[in-house]
Amino acid sequence: MMVKDIQITPAKTSKIHDVDFNNLQFGRVFTDHMFECDFKDGKWSNPKIVPYAPLTMEPSARVFHYGQAVFEGMKAYRDDNDELFLFRPDENYARINKSAARLAIPEFPEDFFFEGLKQLILLDKDWVKKGWGNSLYIRPFVIATEGAIAASPAEEYKFMIILSPAQAYYSQEVRVLFAEKFSRSADGGVGYAKAAGNYAAQFYPTSLAHERGYQQIIWTDASTHEYLEEAGTMNIFFRVNDKLITAPNNDRILDGVTRKSVIQLAQDAGVDVEVRRVPVAEIKEAARNGSLKEIFGAGTAAVINPIAGFEHAGSTYELPKMEDSYATLFKEKLMNIQYNKAEDPHNWRFKIS
């Protein structure tokens, strides 16, 4: 696709001068433009970039009633030479279509996705700030827009991309609860998809954890609550002695881009990585005998977030302070690749030009 195929309507004025980039709340500030494309009459058409603005939709739009909505999360980075990069965007493209398929949403064309993304970022490139931890968070999403209250897949959809400047996601120490009652997802469900409803279902149990002084929940399997699977909206890693352990992908667990990148970086560094089911009992025993060195979450927004302690079945466990932590090591390695400060042996960087 050539740029002429995307209709671009530039904003008359920019909001950028009203933004304090040193005090950003995650996901609260958005750039001047957005990309949109509509599915109608059996095809995606009319890709365009327009000024960021509210949408007008029918109250009967099916997204409001039957939840056909999927999304992605990715970032753009600016290096010291003012060049712009994405990180493994092919993974995000593949995953949004995998999510869409699970919710009976038509696949979005690859050329529309990458050209729309590229042109949108170039138009709002001044919003991508230099500096360690600074980035431009990218939110592609698809919603069912057809006005019809009928419990079946919609025939009309809107694909959009919006952009939000970001700094580091978490700064405080995080303590978590191991889930004993509530579940994030179940066998045969949509847990592996980035479906909007997956996240809404987490809010209530997470709010209960907040009331008890915990920032997040580590979700357990829905059937027995005996195996640890994900941390809030992130994949989860456990370091037992010098071994790194993480749960395998399945239809309950999101196939995280950061997760698979950490696994590869750990293997590159000669770390023993085990991808297997992780029993709650094993991690509690490792905490008691001192072999549990670290727990950390991995995801696009936070990159890697260390966990300081956890509670399960009324017992609390504190983790040691590690000077040579895997969390710090692999976060630095990952970000060095993202910010073009290190070699990229796996060709994960995608230059925008």
Rank of each mutant, 00 (worst) to 15 (best):
T31V: 14
N81K: 15
H33W: 05
V19A: 00
K40V: 10
C37E: 04
D80N: 15
N22H: 09
F35Q: 08
D18W: 03
G67I: 01
D18G: 01
P54H: 01
S45K: 01
L84Y: 09
S45R: 13
D41I: 06
G73Q: 14
E58H: 12
A69I: 12
T31F: 11
N23F: 05
N23S: 06
N22R: 14
Y77P: 13
V29M: 11
F21Q: 06
S45Y: 02
R28G: 09
K40Q: 14
F26V: 06
M57A: 12
W44E: 08
D80G: 03
Y77L: 04
F85Y: 15
H33N: 03
Y77H: 07
T56W: 00
I16V: 06
N46T: 05
N23P: 06
N46W: 07
E83F: 14
F64R: 11
E72L: 12
L84C: 07
V29P: 08
D41M: 02
F30W: 00
P47I: 13
P47K: 06
P51Q: 06
Y66V: 02
F35K: 07
Y52V: 01
D82S: 13
P51R: 07
A69Q: 15
G73R: 05
M74A: 08
Y66T: 06
V50I: 11
Y77A: 05
N46K: 13
V70M: 03
A53S: 13
H33I: 12
F64Y: 04
T31Q: 09
Y77C: 11
T56K: 15
K43W: 01
E36Y: 11
K40G: 00
H65W: 14
Y52T: 11
F21A: 02
A69P: 10
F21K: 04
P59D: 01
V19F: 09
W44V: 09
Q25V: 15
V29S: 02
F64A: 12
D20W: 00
Y52K: 13
G42W: 11
L84P: 10
G42R: 04
S60H: 05
G67M: 13
V50W: 04
K43L: 14
D20H: 05
L55G: 10
N22M: 12
L24I: 08
A76Y: 09
A69E: 14
L84S: 00
G27S: 01
D80A: 15
F21G: 11
T56P: 10
F39Y: 03
Y52W: 09
T31N: 03
P47R: 06
H33E: 05
D38N: 10
F21V: 01
K43H: 13
V29I: 15
E72I: 11
N23V: 09
Q25W: 08
K48Y: 00
S45D: 13
